[in-house]
Amino acid sequence: MLILTCPYCGVKAEETELAPGGEAHLKRVGPEGDDQQFEGYLFARKNPKGVHFERWRHAYGCGKWFLAARDTNTLQVFGTYKAQTPYPTDEIVAEIQKSRPDWKPDWSAAE
């Protein structure tokens, strides 16, 4: 069972109160992108065994979308943060590295 804290209302919501929304931090390919990039945006999804960032919606509560960082293998939750965040926050990264010292972010915030 997965318990995530909604960052909007602070409720510790259980999995059945939430609706899953797939991978987080997808960036839409704009008009300058080619077909292959757009196909990637539509269909290519990460499926890691380990640290993963996901979208969730507090469907039976305040109804807001939020983002969660968790381990798909151990179900350890590293934290949740608001959807208006282009990349996982520094606090989330620090929390992940606390228990996974070798883990490195695969994005650079300057992008």
Partner: peptide, 11 residues
């Protein structure tokens, strides 16, 4: 007689 409930951050 009246109550005001918090439903979500904007409701």
């Amino acid at each position: 007689s009246r109550s005001l409930g918090w439903m979500s951050p904007d409701e």
